[in-house]
Design a protein around this nucleic acid. Structure first.
Length: 139
DNA sequence: GCCAACGTTGGC
DNA sequence: GCCAACGTTGGC
């Protein structure tokens, strides 16, 4: 079971919109980066990820789950780009900020800290547990 | 709003 | 295949 992190600017696509999509979920489309795409190709239905607000949020606000594996991105005809569908599982009791993550020595190797520009990232099981704990939220 | 860091593109 | 130029991202 792998864990992931999805990043979005809340002005463009935020947690509230994700929640509004309900059980059906929504395509995580628009990704035009090979590393991020490869991460999505590796995802399996039921795997979980953090939902992170970049730029104007800078915090992890909730947990999402993959509900459809990689398929062509409907926002482009370019067949290089694929995406998964994700649905909201639950919000964090307490959002975990980038500041807190940077301040936690056990999270110093997180992709979020070291390669903040990658929009779909892998998260280790340890990182997953630590951050859920910090957010006082069920893993 | 700025700018550093990064990824991609395209000419050679 | 290299690398300069360019566009985009995202923290500050």
């Amino acid at each position: 079971m792998a864990y992931w992190l999805f990043k979005s600017e809340p002005d463009v696509w935020g947690w509230d919109k994700q929640v509004a999509k309900g059980e059906a979920g929504e395509e995580w489309d628009g990704v035009r980066n090979y590393q991020a795409r490869n991460n999505m190709r590796a995802m399996k239905t039921g795997e979980k990820g953090f939902f992170y607000h970049s730029r104007t949020g800078l915090e992890i606000v909730g947990i999402v789950e993959v509900c459809a594996e990689a398929h062509p991105d409907s926002t482009t005809d370019d067949d290089r780009w694929e995406c998964v569908d994700i649905r909201a599982v639950r919000p964090f009791e307490v959002p975990v900020t980038l500041e807190q993550i940077k301040a936690e020595p056990r999270l110093k190797d997180m992709v979020l800290v070291n390669n903040s520009r990658l929009s779909v990232q892998p998260v280790t099981a340890d990182e997953w547990a630590i951050i859920c704990d910090m957010g006082q939220t069920e893993p």
